[in-house]
Design a protein around this nucleic acid. Structure first.
Length: 608
RNA sequence: GGAACUGUGGUGUAGUCGGUUUAACACACCGGCCUGUCAAGCCGGAGAUCGCGGGUUCGAGUCCCGUCAGUUCCGCCA
């Protein structure tokens, strides 16, 4: 193994072309592949820019210790410095499948900067390797052009967003990572204080209060690529630490924020993907979205809308339908074009799913060539079927699926059924980007477990002026000045117009059962800030990881995060989280339960 | 907290209803040969007791139970 010695890198592998023929170059990089013919050795040398073929022949001197001899000991993923002449390949040996396939580097000097053991897997194969192993050796997984492309895109997207917002006069500001735990929302990650025994910082779930206080400070327009931390269970699109594009503006209303967001996304998609987004995006109220799509994050890339046929069947001779309506429920359904061909087995599977999801059953009507087929045919009157067909637009070849249940259950089950059917029937065009705003979310919802009202968005969200009186009488009906932006059925971001008056803020705290004293203790600093000239303000935050995942057509945000955690929130690479030695705990005034103590002592022994 | 799927040499897979296997194949690895390959080739070699622990059985990679890990989903995620 040598140092690069006198060699100084002059070019990057992927940048070489026939134009460089005749030049002496020095390259540094990794050995992607070795083809040793005994008399002539080919090495594919890779750096971030690409791959180029390096050739060594005994002309380089095959005396002991020569470059040629060194080359024959080279293995995949060795790190090399090579010096040589760029030349056109001999006629007939060009490789059209390689960007640099017209040329090669006739190497006169080869230094091995580092060797590599046989790898657990080779970067080239990483895509097909078990993800746990890839995460264990993430630096090898990341040693491939596809990953560099993703992180290059990540940087570009961030740059475009910064560029756009800078032009719009936004200030990029960092807020604390060590902050105060807030009672609302997700579980906090806590950090013990050494200086203050028994007290803890929390990692921010979002910079919410800080950005509001920046508005109170008069910054007017704030943005941050904010790291956020939430100690909740993971999903393909959820990591315990993630990045939000967090922004806030003063003296604005919903439309201002939404317009800015649309322009920003249009700018980003235009420059980044060369995709022209049509703005403004469609808007659906929460209620309408739930009714038509059974979801507050509807995927609008396909139809299969939910129809309400409650009034048609309220007096039906079929007890399933009439009964549901009589008891305050609904009858709703989906028309599946072409679904008449579904087998009995498939229908049974769908029914089973519907039951799993909370329905009592699934009523189906096959609109076949020879008439309507359904298990309910005997109980339902022909004219009711006719009415159903015309209400749902049923045509020969279609399938109608109906759920009779309480509204919320019907919406939820049909919403999931809708997604399931779209997958089954391959209705989703994955080239499409379908944005939609969901507006007028409920402000509060009742938490059965904790027996109290909670903010749907967060407790700093303002309420629609006209719904203010409902807070006291029908809290569930009060609508928030909150909005989510949804892309292809994924919640990309959400925001709201905030409360900027102390009295309203206190009223909301009261509505969610936060005692005045508690509120004072936990949010006193913020209530106080509202007293000192807080301007009207609002904002939005996007999941930057999710945005990239969707733009790059990936399945999980782990692919756009360099060092992601597993579903159990561990890091396979570093082994975090891990026990710490008791000295650390003592300094932090932390005492662990017995079981953990044992683990930690073992650790200490092996440690010393 | 719950459900489902996955777990075989370094990697990716095969292994059919439990009984021909000394658990097979490809790539990688080690040794040898080879001056134009780019999925280099040819010859030879080493390497897994089948995630782990129980159980059923005359006999288990193959069946059952438990457990661990990874993934997906539900709950949870203001």
């Amino acid at each position: 193994m040598e140092s690069s010695g006198e060699l100084k890198r002059t070019h990057s592998c992927g940048d070489l072309s026939a134009k460089n023929a005749g030049q002496d170059v020095v390259l540094m990089g990794w050995v992607q592949k070795r083809r040793d013919h005994g008399g002539v050795i080919f090495l594919d040398l890779r750096d971030r820019s690409g791959v180029v073929q390096v050739v060594l022949s005994p002309d380089a001197g095959d005396s002991p210790g020569s470059s040629f001899e060194r080359a024959s000991s080279v293995r995949a993923e060795y790190v090399l410095a090579v010096s040589g002449l760029v030349r056109r390949r001999p006629p007939g040996t060009e490789n059209p499948r390689m960007a640099t396939g017209e040329i090669e580097v006739a190497t006169t000097e080869l230094n091995i900067l580092n060797t590599a053991r046989a790898l657990p897997f080779y970067p080239e194969d990483a895509a097909s390797v078990d993800e746990a192993l890839r995460l264990r050796y993430r630096y090898l997984d990341l040693r491939r052009p596809e990953c560099w492309r993703i992180f290059n895109m990540r940087q570009r997207a961030a740059a475009l967003i910064r560029e756009f917002l800078t032009k719009r006069n936004f200030l990029e500001i960092e807020t604390p990572i060590l902050t105060r735990s807030t009672p609302e929302g997700a579980r906090d990650y806590l950090v013990p204080s050494r200086v203050h025994p028994g007290e803890f910082f929390a990692l921010p779930q979002s910079p919410q209060l800080f950005k509001q206080m920046l508005m109170i400070a008069g910054f007017e327009r704030y943005v941050q690529f904010a790291r956020c931390f939430r100690d909740e269970d993971l999903r393909a699109d959820r990591q315990p630490e993630f990045t939000q594009v967090d922004l806030e503006m003063s003296f604005v209303d919903e439309q201002d924020i939404q317009r800015l967001t649309e322009e920003m996304l249009a700018y980003l998609f235009g420059k980044f993907l060369d995709v022209e987004l049509s703005i403004p995006f469609p808007r659906l109220t929460y209620r309408e979205s739930m009714r038509r799509y059974g979801s507050d994050k509807p995927d609008l890339r396909f139809g299969l809308e939910i129809e309400d046929v409650s009034s048609l069947l309220a007096e039906s001779s079929c007890r399933v339908f009439a009964g549901a309506v009589k008891s305050g429920g609904v009858v709703r359904g989906i028309r599946v074009p072409g679904g008449a061909g579904f087998s009995r087995k498939v229908l049974d599977e769908l029914t089973q799913l519907a039951v799993e999801w909370g329905a009592h059953g699934l009523a189906w009507f096959i609109l076949g060539e020879k008439g309507v087929r359904s298990p309910l045919l005997k109980t339902i009157k022909p004219e009711e079927i006719d009415a159903l067909l015309s209400a749902m637009g049923g045509q020969t070849g279609d399938l109608l699926l109906l759920i009779a249940a309480q509204r919320q259950t019907a919406e939820e089950v049909l919403g999931r059924l809708r997604l399931h059917l779209a997958g089954m029937l391959d209705l989703i065009d994955d080239k499409q980007f379908s944005f939609v705003w969901i507006t007028e979310f409920p402000l509060l919802e009742y938490n059965e477990d904790e027996e109290r009202w909670e903010a749907v968005h967060h407790p700093f969200t303002s309420v629609l002026e006209e719904d203010l009186p409902l807070l006291k009488t029908h809290p569930e009906r009060a609508r928030a000045r909150a909005y989510d932006i949804v892309l292809n059925g994924v919640e990309l971001g959400g925001g709201s117009i905030r409360i900027h008056r102390r009295d309203l803020q206190e009223q909301i705290f009261d509505a969610i059962g936060l005692e005045a004293q508690d509120a004072q203790e936990k949010f006193g600093f913020f209530l106080e800030a509202l007293d000192y000239g807080a301007p009207p303000h609002g904002g939005i935050a996007f999941g930057f990881d999710r945005l990239l995942m969707l733009m790059l057509d990936l399945e999980t945000i782990r692919d756009v995060i360099p060092f992601p955690k597993t579903q159990k929130a561990t890091c396979l690479l570093t082994g975090a989280p891990a026990p710490v030695i008791s000295k650390q705990l003592r300094e932090l005034h932390i005492c662990c339960s017995q079981e953990n103590k044992k683990k930690e002592q073992n650790e200490e022994q092996t440690d010393s």
